[in-house]
């Protein structure tokens, strides 16, 4: 999404952007100065806002997430991390601004179109399909999207094979006939990550994948994430665990009160005084 990329739809995206209206002028200097990463951008937000009543959960936020590798989003509680995830995936409607997913600018992110744009996610509080089996929890995201075609589709060997592979990789193959609500918390977390992995997309949003996990489970989740990263996809994750953030991510975004506090490489950003203050002060 660099300024030099004049071909295709990306210029169209920008033509009708009323910059002042979305509060961009404050952050924005010129298109050329924008961070683009080595392989271009997987995700961008431009002046994105979201309020709940009088609370501005996300306030004219402009940030960029590069393709490939892992980007972590950190910040104190209530800094808007989860809201941002919900805005990126369309789970919450935007109040204003623009989300750019894989070079397509969207004023409205429709959740059911995000996989077409190459995006999927997990939720902060695990959201499985509780009253169906573990097996069906994976199968359901593999099958036909169009309702009438889905009516005629029975389960296909390809789908079954893929589901089996995923369940084995998250270690839940033995539990495939159990209802999802009967799993333990860690298993639920793994299943949710597996469900996201079942979707072949470029970008994965993981909202607090490590929260509340035992060390053993934690390693497993880390391995899964590394596996995704090594296959050349992009991972964006929210975490409070700074050790894991340091270990896994190659880029970090720090939010505070719905605004961007810092973004960049991990160590330099975490060393900045305002970041340290946001975490330790106040």
């Amino acid at each position: 999404m660099s300024g030099g990329d004049g071909s295709g739809g990306s210029d169209d995206v920008r033509v009708d952007l009323p910059l002042e209206e979305i509060g961009l002028s404050k952050h924005f200097h010129s298109w050329e100065n924008l961070y683009t990463g080595q392989d271009g951008l997987a995700l961008e937000t431009i002046g994105v806002s979201k309020s709940f009543g009088a609370v501005k959960a996300v306030d004219r936020l402009t940030l960029a997430i590069p393709r490939k590798g892992m980007t972590s989003i950190v910040g104190p509680n209530g800094s808007g991390k989860s809201t941002l995830m919900n805005l990126l995936s369309g789970t919450l409607p935007l109040d204003g601004g623009l989300v750019v997913i894989d070079e397509v600018g969207l004023k409205v992110v429709k959740p059911y179109e995000t996989p077409q744009h190459g995006l999927t996610r997990t939720f902060q509080e695990v959201r499985l399909f509780d009253q169906i089996s573990v097996w069906d929890n994976i199968m359901v995201v593999l099958t036909e999207r169009r309702p009438f075609a889905a009516l005629l589709e029975r389960s296909k060997p390809g789908h079954r094979q893929k589901a089996r592979g995923i369940l084995q990789s998250v270690g839940l193959w033995e539990k495939r006939d159990v209802m999802a609500q009967e799993l333990s918390y860690g298993q639920r977390k793994l299943l949710e990550i597996g469900r996201a992995m079942a979707l072949d997309v470029d970008t994965y949003l993981f909202d607090e994948p490590f929260a509340g996990l035992f060390p053993q489970m934690l390693e497993r989740v880390k391995d899964l994430m590394k596996q995704i990263r090594d296959s050349g996809r992009t991972i964006v994750f929210v975490s409070h665990n700074m050790d894991i953030v340091r270990e896994l991510s190659n880029r970090i975004i720090v939010l505070d009160s719905g605004q961007l506090l810092a973004e960049g490489d991990v160590e330099p950003v975490l060393g900045r005084p305002e970041v340290i203050e946001a975490y330790l002060g106040a």
Partner: peptide, 9 residues
């Protein structure tokens, strides 16, 4: 993918 117009909806 650009078929999704930025001003849609």
């Amino acid at each position: 993918r650009s078929s999704v117009s930025p001003t849609r909806g």
